[in-house]
Design a binder for these strands. Structure first.
Lengths: 403, 403
DNA sequence: AAGTCTTATTTAATAGCGTAACTTAACCAG
DNA sequence: CTGGTTAAGTTACGCTATTAAATAAGACTT
């Protein structure tokens, strides 16, 4: 009953161009022939599309190497300087802005710490806008060569005529972040949930490479998850995140900041873990406190018990995802997730095994993220890249070199 | 990072044909012009495709009616007798085989009760095979005009080189049901989880009509769910069901027949509800026992409490789905689901509200299924219809009238 | 009753696509 | 320098959907 739409011969071309470009993007220097085999397109079509891409400056020939008795293959490569993308990570403690070239090598970065008690919209908007100017200036890149900007924010992102952000943690309520930012920059803007952008980063460049069905869990102070189905990040009907953190694991259990009881986040979020421990810990931020708690587990029975419980609850939460989504891979990320996973991964796996059905569990692997805790900005920047590969975000025709 | 494949101008045609056919299928007598507007295809293309469909005998002109000063529109209609589909429902208490025409009007039905203690593979295979012959004979239809057969089974269906069924309830372990059936019939065969087939039935013809993102919950003796994303039923990487019933709602809670503890099914499955009540109830099957329990709630505090708890747990389970999937619509089905829902729907809604995030909850409606408890066979038959609409299962070229 | 208007459908012309078969290019071995 | 081999580019072809014009089939007007 899917509401489908006709397509024309032009869509066909765009799709095949996108297939080709994506294939090249994820497996860099390749010859036309390789591309033909990989995509299934005929050599002639590959030639046609490649000619177009070269003409537009998106693809460049990267010196022919290789020979085996015949004409050497000409290697093709995406021109990393065709355009640039910017990823913004709006975190609970800072706003980070990073500028990448097309191949995702970082060209500039700017950080703006936030007062943890103050998440006013205007403060953050201003930080982002100055960050944008800063990274472009820093990298010596004009706004016209930036393709798009991706922004990862905590909380629910509601798509619609105007993108609205509902950030429980920030006390944001229907904030028209897109409109606010647009007033300060003319660049195309895409906003998404931070857990989802990080998930996409791991999917494309980290522990998720090659997976078609995966779940990336972001455990920090709060808890979120990104669900990848058929190679694409899931978005609900309201385009809001997979709010895994507020899944109930104990009916009538601990109170959660969302107002409900027994949420997963109320057990395995860093804040909740520290709260469950109750006693004071060294370190003045959650990160060092949690690290301290983990260290203490070797000597303190109380600390060990807290961590054992954490592994149990986390395993249960993962088991639910396994049963519901049958992912090939589950990736644990976020600063707390990485910290916990390092020590507790075997226990987490065991808990997940016990609470999920045997079959789906057998098809899943549970791993740690590879991109570290700061992949949100990188992931946010994949949003523009995705558009670019789909041909949705072709560069503006003006002032583009070689077009 | 989706592994995409090129498409050709022929795929384009097949897709557009499918778009047109589906559009007509779900909104029956329509003129070419209406179809053109609905699908976005140009009038000329509609004419072309329709000519082809008429030539193949799939579409027929259903008398022109309508006039308004201009040439009257010729109404088009799908020829219900172009071919037939068969849906098989393998339930816990019986095997049901139903034969439908293309427009899903039932033409014949056959029921084979099962001994509840005996779910041997061979018994069921035999029941299905005799059922197939019976319905075809009964409806006076030759096997050659049956397009495909859809089978809905309980448990996990694993896709692969050979479809395997893992039926926890039946004690089935990697049963090659497809192979077993194929030895008895030459007709194309598709096997899927019963909860999913019922979900598709509700989606196409019941309470889910028009929804793009929905969840259909099947609550019987056990608990399952079917998740619809973008108008299509979700299948995990192993193609197994959304095993919602074995999602944990109470860590360390009641033991479940799956071996884990605290599963949703251990609270809201009919068997679990009766078990939680503990006392004997009138009626010799679960169905009448549960009905009796619901009746008693008016007078017995113990019964009322059990039902209140059931509403709570069910609401929690739904809240998890709301948070994870953001469906527009949630549909409660299955015989127990319908029985419970009739009485408890307000309480269930309230529990779901309390345990889900405000925003996704606001976008969801929770309703009862409209097709009754026996929609599994109907749903199983939608599988062939889906293939037919996609052009995947075009009729065999031989002995087709009018081609 | 004939002409005109209105709308639905069909026809003809056009541009774009991918493919298959063929041609050109580049390199190596002898 | 020639023949063999592999890669890349070119051409002709069959398809596709679209646009614009033509035709069909009634209803309304005068």
């Amino acid at each position: 009953m899917l509401e489908r739409r006709r397509s024309t011969v032009r869509d066909l071309r765009r799709d095949n161009r996108s297939v080709l470009l994506s294939s090249l993007y994820f497996d860099q220097p390749r010859s036309r022939q390789d591309l033909s085999e990989a995509t299934g397109l005929s050599p002639a079509s590959v030639s046609n599309v490649v000619r177009e891409l070269i003409h537009e400056g998106i693809v460049v020939e990267a010196g022919s190497v290789d020979s085996d008795g015949g004409r050497p293959r000409v290697l093709l490569q995406i021109n990393p300087d065709y355009g640039y993308v910017i990823g913004v990570d709006v975190g609970e403690t800072r706003v980070r802005v990073e500028l990448f070239d097309l191949m995702m090598t970082e060209r500039a970065k700017a950080d703006y710490p936030l007062d943890p008690r103050e998440h006013g919209v205007s403060v953050i908007v201003e930080a982002i806008l100055t960050g944008l100017d800063a990274v472009m200036a820093n990298a010596g890149i004009s706004p016209s060569s930036v393709l798009e900007i991706g922004v990862g924010v905590p909380g629910i992102v509601e798509d619609g005529p105007e993108v609205l952000v509902h950030g429980q943690t920030f006390g944001w309520e229907s904030v028209p972040l897109e409109r606010l930012l647009r007033s300060g920059t003319g660049l195309p803007l895409y906003i998404d949930n931070g857990a989802k952008t990080m998930g996409q980063a791991e999917l494309w460049f980290g522990a998720g490479r090659g997976a078609q069905n995966a779940v990336v869990c972001l455990i920090g102070s709060g808890v979120g998850a990104s669900i990848i189905t058929n190679g694409q990040t899931r978005r609900g009907s309201t385009s809001s995140a997979a709010e895994w953190g507020h899944t109930t694991v104990v009916v009538g259990g601990r109170g959660c900041r969302c107002g409900s009881r027994g949420c997963l986040e109320a057990y395995i979020g860093a804040e909740a873990i520290l709260d469950r421990y109750g006693l004071p810990l060294p370190g003045d931020d959650q990160e060092s406190a949690l690290a301290a708690l983990i260290d203490m587990a070797a000597t303190s029975a109380a600390a060990a018990e807290i961590l054992d419980d954490t592994a149990l609850y986390l395993g249960v939460g993962l088991a639910d995802l396994i049963n519901l989504f049958n992912p090939e891979r589950i990736i644990l990320g976020g600063w707390a997730g990485l910290l916990l996973g390092e020590r507790l991964l075997p226990a987490i796996r065991e808990a997940a095994r016990q609470h999920s059905l045997r079959h789906p569990f057998a098809k899943t692997s549970i791993e740690l993220g590879r991109l570290g805790p700061d992949a949100v900005a990188l992931g946010a920047a994949t949003l523009p890249i995705e558009h670019f590969l789909n041909g949705t975000a072709s560069a503006r025709e003006n002032d583009r070199p070689g077009s």
